[in-house]
Amino acid sequence: MTSMNDRVVPPAARRRRRPTKTGVVLSEELIVETALRLLKEHGADALTVRRLGLALGADPTALYRYFRDTDDLLLAIADELIGRTLRTWRPAGDWRADLRDLGLRIHAGALSHPQAAVLSSYRVTGRVHEIEAVETILGVLRRAGFPDPDAVRIYHAFVDQSLAFAALDAASLALPRAARDAEAGVWRATYARLPADTHPHIAATARHLLVDMRRSAYPVALDMLLTAAAACLEEVTEHAGHAGPFQARAEDQESARP
């Protein structure tokens, strides 16, 4: 889409639009939902005005009333994926269990729309669902007792880890089936056959590699992060009033720089 900022109108004006010739009443929600479906079925090339217009039964130029360009639409898609995660998440009051559940839901949500996740997982939307997610996660951490500097650093690590694994695993899922099968076969055809005299560590662990490399490492990495955060919270609790451990380490690293 070419930038058409002057065509974007306020939400109230959009709602007053008449149905299209095919009877479709356009909305941001409908356009985003259709874009997600096209991405899932046809990949990134489907994200064009013409293909969206055809799928919606609407004049493609009508989409400019809702989104300035494809990047604006992509931000809305990213925000919708965040919103879907938040709508299905219910905190139980245990900060570690709550963040683990949320992280796994973020990851699963991305894998349910791998093409969209590859395109949008690294974007900062500044939209309503992303803002809600930032507020929610920081609230979980602050209520758990993390000092503000530590809460921000753990939030940052948690979100970046979740989105990084989401992008990595989504990119793998977005590959054609033949390419995915070929990559999985490398562990069996190459690594499992390396001799112990030249590659003793790979040979010793080959049977475990064949099993473990088929699945995402995200749950393990998430547990490691949360275990480290829990240890830091314990340290904060024991030394109340002192700088948080993450803050102290960051300041040490800063002072060590030339």
Rank of each mutant, 00 (worst) to 15 (best):
S3V: 08
S3M: 08
M4K: 12
V8Y: 03
V9P: 04
P10F: 02
A12H: 09
G23K: 09
V24W: 12
L26R: 03
L26G: 03
S27N: 04
E28M: 00
E29H: 15
L30D: 12
I31A: 03
E33L: 03
A35S: 11
L36A: 01
K40W: 14
A44H: 04
D45L: 07
A46W: 09
L47A: 01
T48V: 10
T48C: 14
V49L: 14
R51M: 12
R51Q: 13
G53P: 04
L54C: 09
A58Y: 10
A62L: 05
R65G: 08
R65V: 00
T70D: 15
D71G: 07
D71F: 13
D71N: 14
A78C: 11
L81Y: 10
G83I: 07
L86D: 04
W89I: 08
R90H: 14
R90D: 10
A92W: 11
G93K: 14
G93Q: 15
D94R: 12
R96I: 08
I106T: 08
H107R: 00
H113I: 04
A116S: 00
A117I: 01
L119I: 12
S121A: 15
S121R: 02
T125C: 08
V128H: 15
V128M: 08
H129A: 06
A133D: 06
T136G: 04
V140P: 00
L141Y: 11
R142P: 03
R143N: 14
R143S: 13
A144D: 11
F146V: 04
D148F: 03
P149A: 08
P149F: 09
D150A: 06
V152K: 04
A157D: 11
F158Q: 00
F158M: 00
Q161Y: 07
L163W: 06
F165Q: 00
S172I: 13
A174Y: 05
L175G: 02
P176F: 12
A178Y: 07
D181G: 14
A182I: 09
A184K: 13
V186F: 03
V186N: 05
W187D: 09
A189Y: 00
P195I: 07
D197M: 06
H199F: 05
A203P: 06
A204H: 03
L210W: 01
V211E: 12
M213H: 13
R214P: 01
R215M: 08
R215Y: 15
S216C: 13
Y218Q: 02
T227A: 05
A228E: 14
A231H: 15
C232Y: 11
C232H: 13
L233E: 07
E234P: 08
A240C: 07
A243M: 05
A243I: 02
G244M: 00
A248F: 09
R249T: 11
D252R: 15
D252Y: 15
E254Q: 12
A256G: 09
